[in-house]
Design a protein around this nucleic acid. Sequence first.
DNA 1: CCCTTACTGAAACGACTGTTTCAGTATGCT
DNA 2: AGCATACTGAAACAGTCGTTTCAGTAAGGG
Lengths: 174, 174
Amino acid sequence: MTARRDELLEAAYQFVLDHGLADLSLRPLAQEIGSSPRVLLYLFGSKDGLVRELLTRARRDELDALARIDGGGLDDVTAALWAWLSAPQHRRLLVLWVEAYARSLVDPEGPWAGFARGTVDDWLEVLARAQPSGERRTRAGLARRTRTLALLRGSLLDLLATGEEQRVGAGLVT
Amino acid sequence: MTARRDELLEAAYQFVLDHGLADLSLRPLAQEIGSSPRVLLYLFGSKDGLVRELLTRARRDELDALARIDGGGLDDVTAALWAWLSAPQHRRLLVLWVEAYARSLVDPEGPWAGFARGTVDDWLEVLARAQPSGERRTRAGLARRTRTLALLRGSLLDLLATGEEQRVGAGLVT
DNA sequence: CCCTTACTGAAACGACTGTTTCAGTATGCT
DNA sequence: AGCATACTGAAACAGTCGTTTCAGTAAGGG
């Protein structure tokens, strides 16, 4: 059911990937995706409801990518993750990701609540699965995947700001 | 001259540290700092002008901190930088920093234009000064400080989301 | 004393916001 | 046939936004 809802959510998601969340407002969005504010409110309850679903949608893209990565040790997984993070076709998603992350730091209320915290856990879990089960439960193992996560995300921030894939990539493998 | 201007900018800066940039609007801001929209517009030209100055003000705090750090090799400087980044009293500033960073990624127009790019350069330069002049100009040297920067910033993102200073700190020194 | 400079108050302007009200249509089940 | 369910359009609501207009005060130098 609610086929139209899914369809509009997908269209809105594409719109948000192009324009960001910060200045999102219902009338321009509705116009672009061939709908109306009235309908969006009917289907999603409120603007916050819509934004919540958009973030869930974005998280799904992220989790799908993470799920596709398996096998190999921590270094292999790190390389695979970086390949995904640095792919040009994912840039829009990752910028949206940074925006939502920032927003959830500033005010813990609202639709983005818990986004930053949740995404840390998602990624740490993926990295944990890449560790031998012996190392996984040690304090050193936790430290190592925390470090790996920091390295990946710091590199991502750099890449998104500068676009210098070569320099950033070289830093990662050093 | 324009003593009142400096005074109001400082007050507005404190306000923004508490409330973020995303929902900033003139009337509530003016009320809180004992001014009026009229005066803010007169002194700063426009809201964008005010935001520009606020970001410049934030960057000054950042650069002051960076300037106070000197001496020692790259590892010493990294430790000193992390001590500053992880200090609780800087958290508001760093959340504001992430917000401005994200915003400048989403739309390159507006007052935050170039913020992300500029801050990468600021930090890379500080790290470069911590490298022996021999290493500094090599490709490997660039890669190493790029990596260090990524590590610091990725750790910062983690810390701001989770507050788990111990785990994140352990990841950094591993 | 006058005139410039710095600053301020009150009110309005037009544009926009999320949301609501009231009205429908079209489809498909019973 | 009847009726519920899903969806939609147009218009209005009350509020906020950045900015402008018109008005003024207070201080300091010539």
